[in-house]
Amino acid sequence: MSFDPQHPAQATSAFANYKTLFSDGLFSKAIKNTAVYTASCLGIIIPLSLCMAYLFSQMINKVKYTSSFILLLPGLFPPIVLAILFMNVFHGRTGLLNQVFIMPFGGKPVNWMSHPDYILSAMVIQSVWRWTGFITLFLLCGLESIPKSVKEAATIDGASKFQIFKSIEIPGIKHLIIFCAAFLFIDTFSLFAGSFTLLGPSGGTANAGLLMVNYAYKFTRFQEYNLASTVCVSMLPILMVLTGLFCLRRRKQA
């Protein structure tokens, strides 16, 4: 479909759609935004949930599971509900984020949703809020499944808490961390609903929050489905590389 020219009259080759896209400044902007967004989501969520999982794993059972349940609740929200909630969090003057974290320290209130510099960070915050719980639970269960005897043996040999964490627990759940990272990557990379409901179909002021899938959706408004699918196909190579890496790793393990 992506090779079907959208405007047959002007088309010169099978790659006409790709030419249209690459000459469109928005396309590179969408790529850049997606890259920044995905990278920062991964960079924040994984360490944060690792810390949380470690803290939880030190607690007594009942408290441990209740608190990880609470942490997980945001993961159950459909994006639209998230958007409704976060309109309040990010709102210009009365927003939660401004009132709690910025204004008390003498900062100027930031309009998170309409200032081009802040839209992406607002989206990252939303994503962190949503996914940390799930990833924490995954990692927590991973930590639990490491045999206690190994840790005890290390303690007897005089290893400190941090050493145990670094050389026993992290390697023990390494495969889980990688799995979570892959899962998150795919989810954030192809995020649509989150930004669609938060910013509407336009991608925000100056397209600062435009992600790839939103970019594709933009074309559907003018019934340009071929162009839209071209955008999607151009996302494939990155995902293929990732798939390849993932499969290779699995094979090595097996």
């Binding site: 479909m1 892959a182 795919i186 989810d187 990379f189 192809s190 649509f192 899938v213 594709a216 489905y225 839209a228 699918s229 999607c232 196909v233 996302m235 494939l236 995902l239 990732l242 798939t243 993932f246 499969c247």
Partner: peptide, 18 residues
């Protein structure tokens, strides 16, 4: 079958729509 996981549905949406 496994590669199904790694390709998000959003990418296939337009052919699917057709």
């Amino acid at each position: 079958a496994v590669s199904l996981i790694l390709i998000p549905k959003q990418i296939m949406i337009f052919p699917l729509r057709e």
